[in-house]
Simulated scan of single mutants.
Amino acid sequence: MKVLAAMSGGVDSAVAAARAVEAGHEVTGVHMALSAKPGTLRTGSRGCCTIEDAGDARRAADMLGIPFYVWDFSEEFTEEVVADFLAEYERGRTPNPCVRCNERIKFAALLERAIGLGFDAVCTGHYARLSTVDDSPELRRSVDEGKDQSYVLASLTAEQLRHSLFPLGGSRKSEVRAEAERRGLFVARKPDSHDICFIADGDTRGFVESRLGTRPGTIVDDETGEVLAEHAGVHGFTVGQRKGIGVEAPAVDGRPRYVLSLEPVTATVRVGSRDRLTVDEIECSEVIYPGGQQLAGPAEVTVQIRAHGGVAPAVVAPVEDGVTVHLRESISGVAPGQKLVAYTESADGDLALLAATIDRTA
């Protein structure tokens, strides 16, 4: 196959490209420039898509003997990921920009361009397993559960997955680094990127407030209705947050207060004790079936609401505008805007059944 390898400049994408070459594919490397003004150097594990990363990707491609290009996706990234991120916070929701980036940039904009140029597939360094049964893609968790990225890939359509390759899904991170060492790839010990790539200093609240400004409101005790403090904008909070709320006095039970809900229209942040964070039912919309087969009725599944954590057994059922999830075990800190992925058990490991956006909880 003619394969376009997305090379971030990290060890995972370099080894994934190397495996694609070794498998006999005609491989071309491409680095996605996601910022019009990228930083020059990384700061440890924070940030990505810097000039340094582009240089690392180019050197890895040179070692593999494959053509290499840098494609500018900064405009698409700003519109589809950063603007969406800010809009969701403005609505009092909790977005996942990594899901949006994979969905709208790496496997929409990039794949669309790749197909238009005659490539058969896009290869990435994601940790997830992908197979095809009767022309239907099956997306499963990685062998390395600690690095599994099927959660952020489950929002891809079946057609997108048919043109995707994830060579690392059957490996553990330690094996990938060891392989990079054997291949002489100098990125073998490069640290992984963490946090949100376009907020290199990790200060999400500061980033959001610098873009959205201040919109004063009140922090209210959810049980008593007492106004506890004022705030600069609901976009500075997320459901489940404990630190940095701005209320020093504990709740009635003497325990710390947590953010329970956000009301952008009235600029109200409702807080209360941790036990009021638990939910048993979740309503979702924007449902995507990565395997292409829609849910016909209620199904026993395992749901995940965060990239790492928030896992529980549940029953998911289709409704007119999406799906309803009845949790077998309560989960805390579920926020509107988060992505929910439902998995079913199979002989070959957890299979991603659907992904959806959380709208309401109960």
Rank of each mutant, 00 (worst) to 15 (best):
L34G: 10
P95R: 10
T132P: 01
A299T: 15
L117E: 15
S193P: 15
E209G: 11
K147Y: 06
K37H: 15
S174N: 08
T344H: 05
V27S: 08
V341H: 03
S35A: 15
D144N: 10
E79C: 06
P216T: 12
A16Q: 05
E181N: 08
D62L: 07
V82Q: 11
L156D: 06
R242I: 06
V234D: 00
D53S: 08
R100W: 07
R276Q: 12
A33E: 09
T361M: 08
V239R: 01
S136V: 09
T268L: 02
G333E: 14
S8I: 14
T224M: 01
E345P: 10
R257P: 03
C49E: 14
A16W: 08
F237W: 09
V176Q: 09
E145I: 08
D135G: 02
R306D: 14
S136D: 10
L111N: 02
K106R: 10
A17K: 00
R93C: 12
V220K: 04
P313R: 01
R91Y: 06
C98A: 12
G55C: 05
L327I: 01
I66D: 02
N96R: 04
L340Q: 12
G233E: 04
G310F: 10
R270D: 00
P67N: 02
G322E: 02
V227Y: 07
A317P: 04
E300N: 11
A33Q: 13
A180R: 00
C197W: 15
A356N: 09
R46K: 15
G310W: 09
P97C: 08
V3R: 00
V208T: 01
P137C: 08
V27E: 06
V323A: 08
G246M: 02
N96H: 06
L354S: 03
D201T: 04
V325N: 03
S136P: 03
T324D: 14
A60E: 04
V30W: 13
M7D: 02
F198D: 09
G169C: 10
V81E: 01
C49D: 13
A317C: 13
P256I: 00
P298E: 10
L295D: 08
R162C: 12
V252M: 14
E300C: 05
G65L: 09
E263G: 05
G206C: 09
Q304C: 03
V133L: 13
R182C: 13
T50L: 01
A296E: 14
G170D: 11
D348I: 11
R211I: 02
F85Y: 02
G125A: 12
G206W: 03
R177A: 07
D53P: 09
E88Y: 06
A314D: 10
R42I: 12
I288E: 01
I66W: 05
A356W: 05
P318K: 12
A249D: 10
C284H: 04
F85Q: 07
D253Q: 03
D62W: 05
V143N: 14
E320A: 15
G291V: 15
E248C: 07
S35L: 15
F73W: 11
I245V: 04
P298N: 06
P167V: 06
L327K: 07
L130A: 04
S330M: 11
A362R: 10
